[in-house]
Amino acid sequence: MLYLNQNISAAVAAALVTGLVVGLHSIRDIDPILEANVEALTRGEISDGFNTVIKLESSHTLICRGTGNLECKW
């Protein structure tokens, strides 16, 4: 059990270090406007209460009525 524990500790430490390195690398040289653009594009589903508007792509929408089993149309 102790051996397993040590292995998992090492894996966690490795994952954290990898995450940190990748994170630091990715924030370097990034245009804030492009970052905001990606952020806005990946916000996912938007709902206006009755019609659930699912953003499928940047230029197209799929409108679904109701909740649960949605009836959708282009």
Partner: peptide, 11 residues
């Protein structure tokens, strides 16, 4: 810029 700005306020 990428996307259709008329579909989303943030965009």
């Amino acid at each position: 810029f990428v996307g259709n700005p008329t579909l989303d306020d943030v965009l």
